Simulated scan of single mutants.
Amino acid sequence: MSLLIVADADTLFPATTRGLLIYLDFGGLIRLHWSPMILDEVARALVDAGRKKTLDDAKAHEARMQDALPHALVATRDVQAQFASVAHAVRSAKDAHVAACAHYLIAANAYGGGQAVALVTRNTKDFRKGELAKLGIALRKPDEFLAALFQGDPQAFSAAFRHFRTDLSSRPQPDDLLARLHKDGQVQVAAALMSSLQAGTVEL
């Protein structure tokens, strides 16, 4: 069964990480989710960082993300309905919507079977890990999450990476795309992929 994840804006902001997560969903390893509020944060951050010229450009990119993964969106009203349930599990009110997005999937039994949800964020200090765990939400940093996912199924992960790489218009070499992933901060998983590539145990 695919792992359910909600990716925070800081996880979706770096382009290579964002693309890899989408292709990991395509490959069936994860079921990725976000909300309009998370996507709006990403869009505004891309403009502020100069990676998109205008908010319209960023919103067009956001629309392509939604087209790629139509199942990923958790509606604003569904997120807002969970604010009270997660208030005790966040240290910063500005991050409540991320935890609420994750909790919606549990409260709605969106996938059945009481499956836990991973909240993937670099900003772990703004959440109360123990309180989230009581709600069925596992707080994870993106690098550790991706490294564990690779270790769990190296061939499927590598196939998703390869699909992502070959779909890019620039068709980068594996080591170039791994360098980009490393630059995004995903150091552990980039190193694990490179080591496996050099050992000849995976194709990227």
Rank of each mutant, 00 (worst) to 15 (best):
Y23D: 03
V42P: 13
H88I: 01
V187N: 07
P154Q: 14
A60K: 06
A108P: 09
F145R: 10
T76S: 00
T11K: 07
G114Q: 09
A84M: 08
V6Y: 04
L193R: 00
L135I: 08
N109G: 15
A15C: 08
L55D: 03
A81P: 00
L39K: 06
R162Y: 07
V117G: 14
K125A: 04
R162P: 03
E203S: 14
L177Q: 07
A45Y: 07
D126Y: 00
R122H: 14
T121V: 04
Q186G: 03
R44S: 07
G112F: 06
Q186R: 09
K52I: 02
I5A: 11
I38K: 02
P36M: 03
G152F: 15
L193D: 10
V90P: 01
L20G: 03
M65T: 11
D95T: 00
F161K: 03
T166Q: 05
P154W: 12
L55N: 03
P154G: 11
L139Y: 00
R180M: 06
I106V: 15
H61R: 07
A192P: 05
F83T: 00
S170R: 03
M1D: 08
I22A: 13
T201S: 11
L69C: 13
E41N: 15
V79G: 03
K52T: 04
K141L: 01
A147Q: 04
A68M: 04
G19C: 14
